[in-house]
Amino acid sequence: MIVGVNTASAQEWQTDFAVAKEIATKESKPIILVFQGSDWCGPCIKLDREIWSTDTFKAYANENYVMLKADFPKRKKNALSEAQTKANAQLAEIYNKQGFFPFVVVLDSNGKVLGENSYKKTTPENYIKELNAFIK
């Protein structure tokens, strides 16, 4: 028996807003936009470890969300391409004017803000409930 390559273990993180909106529209899913500093922001790293990287969250997100990452690394070895850096800055300009990290924005497929969240010590299940509370 051949199983599809897109199993729940591989979470698809989009990095292109246009592609994320296209998928969200096609699959009728909300976009979870995550602003993070993957190599310097303690709470961002905890959020990744305690929520995003868990099997529970990955399996659920795979079926129900389009995950979009806007990373702002500081170390040279983790530097993003110039185009990606610019794209992330444009997203921050629209959705994260205060420059909070981590900052989680729940968007509809058109890019309209439905709700906002951040890091908190909780379970993946509770985090999913909080995100879903924004989605009508």
Rank of each mutant, 00 (worst) to 15 (best):
Q11K: 12
Q11W: 04
E12I: 13
W13C: 08
W13F: 14
Q14M: 13
A18K: 13
A18T: 02
V19F: 11
E22P: 05
A24Y: 07
A24W: 05
T25W: 01
T25I: 09
E27G: 03
S28M: 07
K29Y: 03
K29Q: 14
K29E: 15
K29H: 08
I32R: 00
L33D: 00
F35Y: 06
F35L: 09
Q36L: 13
Q36Y: 01
G37K: 03
G37R: 04
G37Y: 06
S38A: 14
S38Q: 04
C41E: 10
G42K: 15
G42S: 12
P43V: 04
P43T: 10
P43I: 08
C44T: 09
C44A: 10
C44Y: 10
C44S: 09
D48F: 11
D48S: 05
D48C: 07
R49L: 05
E50D: 10
E50V: 04
E50P: 08
I51V: 13
W52F: 06
W52G: 00
S53L: 04
S53Q: 05
S53M: 09
S53G: 03
D55A: 15
K58D: 00
K58I: 04
A59L: 09
Y60H: 14
N62C: 14
N64V: 09
N64T: 10
N64D: 05
V66H: 03
V66A: 15
M67L: 12
L68K: 03
K69F: 01
K69E: 13
A70S: 11
F72T: 02
P73A: 05
K74I: 12
R75V: 01
K77Y: 04
S81C: 13
S81P: 15
A83W: 12
Q84F: 04
T85L: 06
K86V: 10
K86Q: 07
A87Q: 05
N88H: 02
A89E: 10
E93P: 01
N96Y: 10
K97I: 14
K97G: 08
Q98E: 15
